[in-house]
Design a binder for these strands. Structure first.
Lengths: 195, 195
DNA sequence: CGATTAACTTGATCTGGGTCAAGACCATGA
DNA sequence: TCATGGTCTTGACCCAGATCAAGTTAATCG
């Protein structure tokens, strides 16, 4: 119940449109609540990402494991973010990513086919999708630029100003991996920053 | 005339839908042909990106200049690609990027307001926009992963298999910058690859 | 065409950040 | 309660790739 309120609020806020009662019923019919305990996987490498999840509560990380066994975190996700490997979700190919709950996680999940229906029938939903797609494009552009032109220190400063919540919610080694750094290097950067 | 054929073909191919004669007239009415000579700028840092361009012929690079004066290429673009800093284009903020023609360039350009109209009135156009947005999201995910987990050599191999045309069309120092490498390093990688 | 400038190569050296190792500082739960 | 395993810090060392320098090849243009 209250789970869905979070989703409704989110859609209305991002899209700038209201959901009708019918819209809400349609959403409740096909978004399924799912709970994961800390360390459980929402998606495993090699599987097809059949579901997209809306995070109601908790946090997660999307990461790969390279052939040397090192993990690389590509995304850290909190409440009101969407959880999926979009490549696998759209194309139905096996995913190269893992998505793991970092805290106990409550999501509302749906399939690609169902999302298509929402896009067709719920104007607020498709308006939201357009806004999100813009935001993603912008965020990706920024992150790519940061990865290419910034030093480790600058990337950390950038994170502090753009995503201050991350520092409260994620352990430091996860943040290091997200920034493309070893935990030791991030530790030293933080030490230096207390000049 | 033939310029527009390239755009029409592209929209129809990507969207999987046909354009009506009315659709085509609407597109021809508001997409303006523009020619740039090699080294001319489509967009300069600090300006708002008012136009999005569809490349009919030629190539371009999107890059930033950091405070040390070093250039970083974020995107290399060829025929049938779209040219814009989407952050600036969507939000009307001053751009942090430069877009420069690397060869004589012919584009068809349009404004954000006009694109909104196309999205509303031309089904093939909005279907195309959805597909592109998916493709961008996927490509960005891949590129980010490559930047984080791959070595210089692996990134170059990756480029060869994903964008072999780049090697014909772009000078090596541009490719180096696109891969986040110094020209010297790329030169050495290529030398080694001829084992 | 030469001549000038840009692109590419090769070598020598330097450095940001990774790796390895060891210890300190926790949470969590049996 | 203390034992266990995860997280963070610190130091010593190392390496992929950058930087600097100089020479070579290839475009470009009057």
């Amino acid at each position: 119940m209250s789970n869905f309120e979070a989703l409704f609020d989110y859609i209305q806020e991002i899209s700038g449109k209201l959901l009708s009662e019918d819209d809400k019923h349609l959403l409740m019919e096909h978004f399924k609540p799912k709970k994961l305990r800390k360390r459980q996987y929402f998606l495993q490498e090699g599987d097809v990402c059949k579901y997209i999840g809306f995070i109601v509560k908790g946090s997660a990380r999307t990461f790969t494991v390279d052939e040397k066994g090192h993990e690389h975190i590509l995304k850290l996700s909190l409440e009101n973010w969407w959880l999926a490997d979009f490549e696998s979700f759209y194309l139905l190919t096996p995913s190269r990513f893992n998505i793991e709950a970092l805290e106990n996680l409550e999501v509302l999940q749906s399939t690609n086919a169902q999302i298509e229906e929402y896009l067709k029938h719920i104007p607020a939903f498709s308006a939201m999708a357009n806004v999100i797609s813009q935001n993603y494009t912008i965020a990706n552009q920024k992150r790519m630029q940061a990865a290419m032109s910034y030093t480790a220190e600058e990337r950390y400063e950038d994170l502090i100003s753009n995503y201050p919540q991350f520092l409260q919610r994620f352990p430091q080694n996860m943040i290091a991996s997200y920034l493309g750094l070893s935990p030791e290097t991030l530790s030293r950067i933080r030490k230096n920053a207390l000049k």
